[in-house]
């Protein structure tokens, strides 16, 4: 395509927006997962969840760090995480869903991991070297997250009647929050055309396949595609996000300018 008319300021804004989206997903999901710390149903799960949260927080540092760099207004990853309000957050609604029981936490993780995995895989080939480098590192971690969450969804789906019905109920509830992963706006289209990111809808067939395979193996029924919730990617969130931020940002807000 013709690349002549790229406005550098617009490109910078689009890039910042994309980095906030991917960074905020990692941050908010990392926060949710870390809420389990010490409360998981088995010691091995406590360890695994802490590990997942740790990976996600590490990825947040990289993505939001790069976002601050791209923005070039002197904001650090911490400034972005701790000093923005809800309407400035760009995570999808799925990751701010409350943990619920352990099954819902795992189902949310699986639906997200399957997409995150494909997204990072594509981003490894980004025309922006900085993005490709972060994706390279994060992809290894997320491949492992996906292996784990997929395996547990299958085993619990095809476990007892109770574990099956809990997993099915979680799937049914969360399904309406999966559509947002594949929605596209002008910004996505612009960055996709420049080869910086994959077009969101291009990830859908791969995701469908991973999800369908796991659900079949776990004897779970894929819900019908009905209305899909949206809004997070443009800063319109559910009421849950405000409480996440009130908790997460408490010290930075209560002691402005202090260093920790």
């Amino acid at each position: 395509m013709a690349t002549a008319a790229v406005d550098p300021a617009a490109r910078q804004a689009a890039l910042f927006e994309f980095l906030a989206r991917i960074g905020d997903n990692a941050l908010i999901l990392g926060h949710r997962v870390s809420e389990w710390c010490g409360h998981a149903p088995a010691l091995e799960e406590d360890i695994a969840l802490a590990n997942t949260a740790l990976d996600l927080i590490g990825q947040t540092q990289l993505w939001l760090g790069l976002a601050g760099e791209v923005e070039d207004k002197g904001r650090s990853a911490d400034d972005l995480a701790y000093l923005r309000d809800g309407y400035e957050f760009r995570n999808i609604l799925l990751v701010e869903r409350p943990n619920g029981d352990f099954g819902k936490t795992l189902m949310r993780q699986f639906l997200f991991d399957a997409w995150h995995y494909l997204l990072l895989k594509a981003l490894k080939g980004s025309s922006d070297r900085r993005i490709a480098d972060i994706a390279e590192k994060a992809f290894k971690e997320v491949s492992y997250h996906l292996d784990r969450s997929r395996d547990l969804v299958i085993r619990l789906g095809d476990g007892t009647a109770e574990s099956h019905s809990r997993m099915q109920a979680s799937l049914d509830e969360l399904w309406a929050f999966t559509g947002e992963m594949f929605m596209s706006d002008a910004l996505d289209a612009e960055l996709a055309e420049a080869g910086i990111i994959p077009a969101p809808q291009s990830l859908k067939p791969g995701w469908d396949e991973i999800v369908a395979e796991a659900l079949t193996e776990g004897t779970l029924k894929k819900p019908a595609d009905g209305y899909m919730h949206r809004g997070g990617r443009r800063g319109v969130h559910t009421e849950h996000l405000g409480f996440i931020l009130a908790e997460m940002q408490f010290l930075q807000r209560a002691y402005p300018g202090a260093t920790w």
């Binding site: 926060h31 802490a50 949260a53």
Partner: peptide, 22 residues
């Protein structure tokens, strides 16, 4: 953990608590 004041402190604390479980 959910109230740690910086991303780095949060990561270090997560790693620590994970060690304790280990």
């Amino acid at each position: 953990i959910t109230r740690a004041p910086t991303l780095e402190r949060k990561a270090i604390l997560l790693a620590k608590v994970q060690d304790e479980a280990g």
